[in-house]
Design a protein around this nucleic acid. Structure first.
Lengths: 342, 342
DNA sequence: CTGAAAGCGCTTACAG
DNA sequence: CTGAAAGCGCTTACAG
C-alpha cells in the first residue's frame, strides 16, 4: 500500500485530478481568493485535496510571497523560569492565527543575538519579539533600520519609537515599598538588577524616588551584573559587608532574592525574622519555598500574548504607531516579609 | 544613507558586483562546493558578500533542496518545568550545526499533535523530536509511515523500530525503593503516572516487580490521568480513603509528589514525619521547597542533546538503525524521606 | 573552473 | 470564473 519515499502531493496533483489549471487550485484553496472561483470547482478541489492528503508547502508559499507566517522570539535563556510563560503566551496567540514561532536563546550575548536574528531573517520571519533588550541596544537599532516589525517584551530601550509591552514598574515597586513600610521597616535595601536593562534600571530609580518621598535612606543599594541567583548571593554579601543597618531587602527579581536568601542562610540570618525580603516576577513554585517569597506578580503569559497581538497588527499594517503597553503587576504577600524586628 | 524598504541582497547582486554567473556565487559560498571554484573568485565573492551584507535566503534554499535545516519538537507544555532543559539541550545541539528548532505544545491532545506535525511538514522540517509519545500512538505511526526522521525523548512507544532516548526506569525506581527500604519502610505506596505513557507504565511495573522481590505489598497503587500537581492531590486522597497503611509514597514524577504533599498538608499530615515521599525528574528549585523533595534526577538537558545528535545522524544517513538510548538517572536524597515512624 | 538552463511549489498580475 | 506565464532565490545536473 505505501510506497517508500512517497513524493509529496502538490497543487499540480490536485489540478490533474480535478482537471483544472494549478493556478485555479491555488485560488480555490486560498481563503481570500476562493470566491473568485466557482463554488463547484472549489468543492471539487477541496475534495481532491483531502483525498490526496494535500497540505501546502509553506516554504514555497513563503518564497513567493516574501513572508513566512513565522515570527522570531529572542530570549536570554529558556531555562530561566520567567520565560516559559511568556513564550507560551506568544505561541498560543501566534498559532491561533496560523503563525509559527521560532525562539532562540541569546544568553545575553550580543554575538548570539546577532546570529539568531540573521538566521531568522534568512527564514524570512515576518516580525520579531525581543525579550533581551538592553537600554541602548545596537541589535535592536539594526532591526529598526532594516524595517523588521518588532515588539519588545518585558524590557525596553531608552529611545522611543518602538512598540513595547512592559510592566508598570512604578506601581510594582511602590506596592512592595508600601507593604514594607507598613511593616515598620525604615532601612530598606535594594539589590538592583543590571543597570543596562530597563527593568533593572527603572526599578532602582523608582525605589530611590519613593524612599526619598518617605524620607528614608536610599543609599542601601547594591547593583548586580545579571539577574541570577549567584549574583544575588554575591551582592548580598557585598552589601552586608558595607552596611548592615537594614531590615528589609527589595530584590530586583526573584532569582536575585533567592540568592540573597542563600547568602543569609550561609551566615545564619533568618528570613523574615532578621531580614524581610521581596522578589519580583513571581516565578513558579515560589509559594512552596521556605520561606515563601513575597513578590510582585508580573503577568507573563499575558505580556507574551499582548506583544504577539501587537506584532501581528504591525505585520498586517493595522498598528497605529509605536507605543508602550504598560501592564499592571500585583503584589503577592507571602511569608518572607514580616514586621521589622527593631 | 538608509533607504526605506531596502530590497534584500541576493546571490545575483553579488554576481553582478564580481562579474561572474550567480551559480558561481552559489558554489563559492557553499562550504562543500567552494573547492570547485578558483580561490581568487571565492575570495572576491566572499568580500562582495560581506560588503553587501548578504545572508542566504534559507527559504529559497530549502525549497530547492527539499530540506530546511530545521527540526520540529513536540512537547506537551512548555510551562511544565521538565521541558525547558530538554529543549535547551535540543536547541544548543541543533544550532551548533546550523539547524533551527521549531517547538509546539500539544497539551497532550492528539488533534494539536496532528496540527503541529502538519505545520512542521509544511515547513519541510528535516526531522522531529517527540516528547509526547503515548505507548500506542497513531500520530507517531503516521510519522514512521511517512518516513519522517524521528526520535522520541523521555517517553517511548511499545513497539520498537524507532529511535528513543529514555531513562533507565528500572535503575531509577530501584534506587528510590532501596532508599526507602533502608529507612525501614515496608508499606510503600505508588502514585502512578498515566498508564498510556511509557514512563507512567514502566515505573509502576518496575515498582511492583521490586516490591515483590522484597516480599512487600505491591497493591498500594493509585493511577493518575495526567502528570500534574492536581492529579497527585486527587490520587493521594483517593488512596488514603481506601487504605492508610503506608508510610511512604513513590510518586510517578515531581508534580504528582507535590500534589500529594498539598493533600497531606490539607489534612495535617507531616512530611516526612508521618509519610515519606519521593518524586521523579528533579525539576528546578525542589531543593528550596519545604520539605525539600527527594527525587530521581533525570538528565534532561543531556537527553535533549543526545536525541538531537541521533536525529541529525539520521538526517545525514549516518544512523545505524533504530535503538533505545537509556540514560542513567540518579537518586537525590533530600528531606522528604526519613525513617519510617512505625 | 565556470556558465546557462531548468526547476523546487507556490502566487499573482495579465488576459480573456 | 479560469488559464498561461512569469518569477520568488536558490541549487545542481549538464556542458564545455
Amino acid at each position: 500500500m505505501q510506497r517508500k519515499t512517497r513524493r509529496k502531493v502538490t497543487i499540480r496533483d490536485i489540478a490533474d485530478l480535478v482537471d483544472v489549471h494549478h493556478s485555479t487550485v491555488s485560488r480555490a484553496l486560498s481563503p481570500e481568493k476562493c470566491d473568485q472561483i466557482s463554488p463547484e470547482v472549489v468543492k471539487k478541489v477541496e475534495k481532491a485535496a483531502k483525498k490526496l492528503g494535500y497540505y501546502p508547502n509553506i516554504v514555497a508559499s513563503s518564497l513567493k510571497q516574501n513572508r513566512s507566517f513565522a515570527i522570531g522570539v529572542l530570549i536570554p535563556d529558556l531555562m530561566n523560569p520567567v520565560f516559559p510563560p511568556i513564550i507560551r503566551g506568544i505561541q498560543d496567540t501566534a498559532e491561533a492565527v496560523g503563525y509559527t514561532v521560532i525562539t532562540a536563546n541569546t544568553d545575553d550575548e550580543e554575538a548570539k543575538e546577532r546570529d539568531a536574528l540573521r538566521m531568522m531573517q534568512g527564514r524570512s520571519i515576518d516580525g520579531v519579539i525581543i525579550a533581551t533588550a538592553r537600554r541602548t541596544d545596537p541589535v535592536i537599532k539594526e532591526c529598526i533600520d532594516n524595517d523588521i516589525p518588532l515588539v519588545l517584551v518585558n524590557r525596553t530601550i531608552d529611545h522611543d519609537g518602538v512598540n513595547a509591552v512592559v510592566i508598570d514598574e512604578d506601581f510594582g515597586i511602590r506596592a512592595v515599598l508600601d507593604h514594607l513600610i507598613s511593616l515598620k521597616h525604615t532601612n530598606i535595601a535594594h539589590i538592583a538588577g543590571p543597570q543596562h536593562t530597563s527593568t533593572g534600571y527603572h526599578r532602582a530609580r523608582v525605589m530611590a524616588d519613593h524612599l526619598r518621598v518617605h524620607s528614608l535612606r536610599s543609599d542601601l543599594v547594591e547593583i548586580t551584573e545579571k539577574f541570577t541567583v549567584e549574583e544575588g548571593r554575591r551582592a548580598f554579601r557585598k552589601l552586608l559587608a558595607r552596611d548592615n543597618g537594614f531590615t528589609a531587602i527589595v530584590a530586583g527579581n526573584d532569582l536575585l532574592a533567592l540568592g540573597c536568601m542563600d547568602a543569609m542562610k550561609e551566615i545564619g540570618l533568618l528570613v523574615p525574622e532578621n531580614i524581610s525580603i521581596s522578589g519580583y516576577d513571581d516565578i513558579q513554585f515560589l509559594e512552596r519555598m521556605s520561606p515563601a517569597l513575597t513578590t510582585v506578580l508580573v503577568p507573563k503569559y499575558e505580556m507574551g500574548s499582548q506583544a504577539t497581538r501587537i506584532l501581528l497588527d504591525m505585520i498586517s499594517g493595522e498598528n497605529n504607531g509605536p507605543g508602550e503597553l504598560r501592564m499592571q503587576p500585583r503584589l503577592v504577600i507571602r511569608n518572607s516579609t514580616a514586621v521589622a524586628y527593631k
